[in-house]
Amino acid sequence: MKNRLKVLRAERDWSQQDLAERLAVSRQSVNAIETGKYDPSLPLAFRIADVFDKRIEDIFVRD
C-alpha cells in the first residue's frame, strides 16, 4: 500500500522521530510504514490520520 507519510511529514517539518513520538510508536515503525515495508493496523492508521488531521484515504492509497 502506498502512502503520503513522507510528504505530510515534510510539510510539517517533522522528523520520523517526531512523528513516532506523536504516534507513541518506534522510529523504526514509522520508517517501515513510510517505506511501504509494513501496512499499519486500522487503529494505528486512524491514529496517523488524527495526527495529520486527515482521513485515512487521504494518507493511504491502494497499489
Binding site: 507513541a24 510508536v25 518506534s26 523504526q28 515503525s29 517501515a32 510504514i33 509494513y38 499499519p40 493496523s41 494505528l44
Partner: peptide, 8 residues
Amino acid sequence: MEDEYLRL
C-alpha cells in the same frame, strides 16, 4: 508489546 511493527 505495544509497538505493533516491532511485535511483528
